[in-house]
Design a protein around this nucleic acid. Structure first.
Lengths: 233, 233
DNA sequence: GGAATTCTTCGATGTTCATCGAAGTATGGA
DNA sequence: TCCATACTTCGATGAACATCGAAGAATTCC
């Protein structure tokens, strides 16, 4: 006689709301609990119940960030199961909720606590990684030798910012881009410096950040990136 | 919003008895309903319920044979799902039911209706395929040109056996070996000839067939196969 | 510090579903 | 023709579980 854990895993996926959530998570990104709730067409309490159940089963992971909790698929084995299931029985798209176009600005550039987030934040972080000023490492970003001189040239005093390289440069999960960007004290120092340089302006009402004309040319010259709104459709 | 058929498939597998059945079927062979019932530790009615449910869902196939019904996994996509699940959550073997050693003889060589079955039947069929006398085709075996002369040499009149090549040579699913063997009028003619040659003896009480000394040397010489009981542990 | 938000736990409700006894169908063997 | 075997359908029982309202925790923002 054979008893299987297979049934337990399948049982998790067998509930339609959970299957919907996992299907959404197959994009490889992390999503908030409330977003997953609305996508699955259930109330937040119900989603919370399902999410904790899946977490307990070890097939999804949670990442807390302020009052948000981001959920994502935990590893490749789980993704494989979903992939084979999706191949055998592809899901049916019922409808697409009307795109809210209101909050483009806040998705594009905003503050996250004390650092830059949104598409701008991710783009800047990517540029820093690509140029070799930062190195992706486990849970943090590490500043390279070349990075040290770069930040000094930019006018950021790394000595003052933090004692240890490893501790001041942290990764932060972006809710709109669903990717990591630079946080921690270095992220904060960078944002402050951008504002100091006149490249960015804080928008009083909300957490959005406006990129100035000087900023567009500055980011282009210094990072080689185009932060004009054109590319955002 | 996304609705998924994924959940439906997962729901099928999520039930422990069904998962156990599917895990057994992952050996790629066909098993009888009652055997699957005992392996899953449930009553035949319950197994019947689950089997028809899985068949309806299109993940297992049924093959009727006399009063037996053989069930097996329907295609590779289903096997992939099970494989990824088994990888993520391997099953636990609880116990091994005591091997019934009583019926070795009947498993080894017996008549199935009017032809040879059991290990001997499958082995002979394999040899015929390997030698290129038969060709595996859809639901039947096809006699090749070389096969025609071979059977004639063996003393089987193919003209008398059947009118059409395709119709007289059928495949039969073996309950002990769980593989196909040669049935139909050609299978019958072959069995009769083996008995005629003194290679085999019918056992009166049951359907078992005894292979004689002449048979062992005969099968070795003609088919290149060893049907002495040694190889059966 | 207070309001708003994000997400959680708790408890009650209602539905779905596996299980097995009993009875029915089909097949093989004597 | 009759019995044994293999498997099915039917019907009743009981247990598991998704759902959501209400209320509670944690965090951000002003």
């Amino acid at each position: 006689m054979v008893k299987s854990n297979v049934a337990e895993i399948a049982s998790i996926i067998s509930e339609s709301s959970r299957a919907a959530i996992l299907t959404v998570l197959m994009d490889g990104r992390f999503h908030t609990a409330s977003e997953l709730a609305s996508m699955a067409g259930i109330k937040p309490q119900t989603a919370s119940f399902h999410l904790s159940k899946m977490q307990e089963a070890g097939i999804i992971a949670q990442q807390k960030q302020g009052r948000h909790r981001y959920y994502g698929i935990v590893n490749n084995e789980v993704a494989n199961v979903m992939e084979s299931l999706l191949f055998l029985a592809p899901p049916v798209k019922i409808s697409s909720l009307k795109q809210s176009t209101q909050d483009k600005a806040i998705r594009y550039a905003r503050t996250c606590y004390d650092h830059l987030a949104g598409k701008a934040g991710v783009t800047v972080t990517d540029a820093l990684l690509k140029a070799g000023y930062l190195k992706d490492e486990q849970e943090t970003f590490l500043v390279t030798e070349r990075g040290i001189s770069f930040f000094n040239e930019l006018g950021i005093d790394l000595e003052k910012t933090g004692k240890k390289r490893r501790s001041f440069s942290m990764r932060c999960l972006d809710w709109s881009e669903r990717r990591h960007h630079l946080a921690g004290s270095l992220g904060n120092a960078l944002l402050e410096r951008f504002i100091e340089l006149g490249w960015m302006l804080r928008v009083p009402q909300n957490r959005a950040v406006k990129i100035t004309e000087e900023g567009i040319t500055g980011f282009m010259r210094t990072f080689g990136i185009d932060l004009s709104l054109e590319e955002e459709r």
